[in-house]
């Protein structure tokens, strides 16, 4: 799995921004594990960046609390195109175990468009890497098609 990442990263060297929208921290520490020696994705060219203006990929953890909703929107707006969003875990998808709670929006795609969802509570580091590889694949495919427009919409798939 790391080899696949290496192949992709050499082509793209993605810069990643992590945003915690009110998470319990489990997803965040599993993402952080990726830059530590056991997984060490930095040597593959995957870099964690501090500002939205330089990031290719935004990884969002948490179910999006009411407090973080606007900031998440603002961070997304500050990112230059082409930009990609990965929603982490059960929380990122639909709010996870916090769905319906009074201070929670419930899912990243209620606030910004999401490209890849990584399942788990929390997802394991290898599953996260898998998600990153999928995003890189998507970035490549989108570039070939001149943008994101070519992607099938969910309702078309269902039909």
């Amino acid at each position: 799995m790391l080899k696949r990442l290496a192949t992709w990263a050499r082509k793209k060297s993605p810069w990643i921004l992590l945003f915690n929208s009110g998470a319990c921290n489990a997803c965040d520490i599993e993402v952080l594990s990726l830059i530590t020696p056991r997984f060490d994705v930095e040597r593959l060219g995957v870099l964690a960046k501090g500002t939205p203006r330089h990031a290719d990929i935004l990884i969002v953890t948490g179910p999006v609390t009411l407090k973080q909703m606007e900031r998440l929107q603002r961070i997304y707006d500050q990112m230059p195109e082409p930009k990609y969003v990965v929603a982490m875990g059960a929380c990122g998808a639909l709010g996870g175990i916090f769905k319906g709670l009074y201070h929670v929006v419930g899912g990243v795609d209620k606030v910004i468009p999401v490209d890849v969802w990584v399942g788990g509570c929390p997802p394991r580091p290898d599953e996260i890497i898998d998600g990153v590889v999928k995003v890189l694949q998507l970035m490549d495919d989108d570039a070939k098609h001149g943008g994101k427009g070519w992607r099938q919409k969910p309702q078309e798939v269902a039909a």
């Binding site: 915690n20 009110g22 998470a23 319990c24 489990a26 948490g62 179910p63 609390t65 407090k67 973080q68 996870g96 175990i97 916090f98 319906g100 709670l101 009074y102 201070h103 929670v104 509570c121």
Partner: peptide, 24 residues
């Protein structure tokens, strides 16, 4: 920033479900 409303939610979930909630 990360207040979610867990204490309230625990009141409407049985003990077993509440356990999964407080774990997170």
């Amino acid at each position: 920033y990360n207040h979610r409303g867990i204490e309230k939610a625990a009141e409407t979930r049985d003990f077993h479900k509440a356990l999964y909630l407080v774990e997170r």
